[in-house]
Design a protein around this nucleic acid. Structure first.
Lengths: 101, 101
DNA sequence: TGCATTGTTCGGGAAACTTCGAACAATGTT
DNA sequence: AACATTGTTCGAAGTTTCCCGAACAATGCA
């Protein structure tokens, strides 16, 4: 393992940016910003559920979304409070960014 | 080539986020934000110049930085104007984000 | 004309990411 | 109990990224 890598490791912020660097995950986040809560399957993404689940996990591990089981359904939603504390202005930036996203 | 990928391709915004998803590039951007212009070699990054050049290219291709040759030196600086237009609030967010970055 | 400096490009090998089907829980429904 | 639904996990394959040394411009200086 090269010594250089020990100098710069993944940080919370770079992890967040990395998670948002994928077009699919970025679309998921934007859908959540628009519609509030969405069940994992409630996306019009033509992807197998294993792929979807993977992307949701990346977003969860980055601290961007949380999930919330209510009865029979599992909803995903954006952890606005935590995000606003760690990256003030990020969510507002995402909603204001120019298309195409 | 899977059909699915034709639905969601890289977008300008996801490209920007992806570029900032690397700890090294994020550090470069933060240094530029603090110090204004910096020559490619003027970073205290313990990396060979080929690696450094690679990261600068990624940042340039994402439209985050520009370079500016002045006499013998080549300076890099952040394209604030263009960034502010495409991602309003991004630079402010980066400066306000909580450490560790 | 050499020589140093600075940055890019190329080629490879290693590591990480993305994607998918299949198998596996967990829950609700009939 | 049998089945459907929803989401996770696993393993494998393909792609991409990252990193580095080496070779290659381009410029300035001795």
């Amino acid at each position: 393992m090269p010594e250089v890598l020990s100098v710069l490791v993944k940080t919370p912020l770079s992890t967040i940016m990395d998670a948002l660097g994928d077009p699919i995950r970025l679309k998921i986040v934007r859908m959540l910003l628009e519609k509030g809560e969405i069940a994992c399957g409630g996306f019009d993404l033509d992807l197998p559920k294993s792929t979807r689940s993977h992307h949701f996990k990346v977003l969860r591990d980055a601290g961007i979304i949380l999930k919330h089981e209510e009865g029979t359904s599992i909803y995903n939603y954006i952890d606005r409070e935590s995000l606003e504390e760690r990256c003030p202005g990020l969510l507002e930036m995402l909603t204001q960014a120019e298309p195409p996203y």
